[in-house]
Simulated assay, not measured.
Amino acid sequence: MKLFDCPHCGHRLYFENAQCLNCSSLVLYDPERACFVLSGGDAVPCGNADECACNWRAEPGRIFCRACALNQLIPDLSVEGNRRRWIRVEAAKKRAVYSLLAFGLPVAPKVGPQDEAGLAFD
């Protein structure tokens, strides 16, 4: 996995970081630019930031990031241990989506049950 730089201080960031360990800036991964950006202004955290530790930027005008928008079904979070499991699954999915985008492959959610072109995660 590629190493990234903090957009504020230039310190090394890892793919799972949501905060720079050097300057404490809150950062978000922007899949369109393939880099981290400072949180705030038009860089809004994904709606799943508090739910499953998502550190990606929400799509402009949307609640979720590009990867979380692919979720059709999430685990029952009232079941003990499911949140921890979901966080691990989401981290793996983010790496998969990152790779698909890096290869220039299309990443779009399924529009309906008959849609064969989109991606969906249950």
Rank of each mutant, 00 (worst) to 15 (best):
Y14P: 00
L3S: 10
V27C: 11
L119K: 08
K93C: 03
W56M: 07
R57Y: 03
C20M: 06
P109S: 04
K110C: 13
C54Q: 05
S39M: 15
L21W: 05
A117E: 13
W86S: 01
A91M: 02
V97L: 02
V89G: 10
E32P: 04
P109I: 07
L73G: 08
A49Y: 12
C54R: 04
P106Y: 04
A108E: 13
F64W: 06
M1P: 07
P31F: 06
A91I: 00
E32M: 02
A117H: 12
H11I: 00
A92K: 07
R66T: 11
D5Y: 06
A92M: 05
G118W: 06
C46Q: 06
P75K: 07
K93V: 11
C23I: 04
L119I: 12
A18W: 09
C46P: 05
K2G: 03
A117T: 13
I74A: 13
R62S: 14
I74K: 10
P106H: 05
E116R: 15
Q72A: 11
D122G: 11
R62D: 10
S24K: 13
G81R: 01
C20V: 07
A91F: 07
P60V: 08
F103A: 14
F121N: 00
S25Y: 11
N48W: 06
Y98P: 01
W56G: 02
S78M: 08
R12E: 09
E32Q: 02
A53P: 03
G41A: 15
G41S: 14
A96G: 05
P31K: 02
G40Y: 00
A91E: 10
F64G: 05
P31Y: 06
C20Y: 00
V79T: 11
E32W: 07
R33G: 01
H8T: 12
E32K: 07
G112E: 14
D30S: 15
P106Q: 04
N48Y: 08
R88E: 15
N55F: 11
E16P: 00
V97Y: 01
D115K: 05
A117Q: 15
D50E: 11
G61D: 01
K93G: 02
S25H: 11
A96D: 01
A18K: 07
A43G: 05
R88P: 01
L28C: 10
R12D: 00
A108I: 10
N82L: 03
V37T: 07
D50G: 15
I74G: 12
V37R: 13
E90V: 01
E80M: 11
C20F: 01
D115C: 03
E90A: 08
A34V: 09
V111F: 06
E51L: 14
